[in-house]
Amino acid sequence: MCLAIVGHIQSIQGSKAKVNYNGNILQAELGIVEAKEGDYILIHAGCAIEVLTKAKALELEDLFKELQEAFNE
């Protein structure tokens, strides 16, 4: 229902961004986010729906820590 990928903004022209995803350059609408060049954005069907707060790679480590705390393990 929600196929989306995280792309890296290379440049912005008006309300559209040129985004790099693993070497593929595609266009994304920016009308529903506040984004700038260099941001990582979540793109669904050609439109950015969120700007990432931190790099994805760190995320799993943080999740493990949170789960540990939540269940006192």
Partner: peptide, 13 residues
């Protein structure tokens, strides 16, 4: 468990 993309209040815009 998806905090880098999901905020408590979501995308207000």
């Amino acid at each position: 468990l998806y905090p880098e993309v999901v905020k408590p209040l979501g995308n207000l815009k």
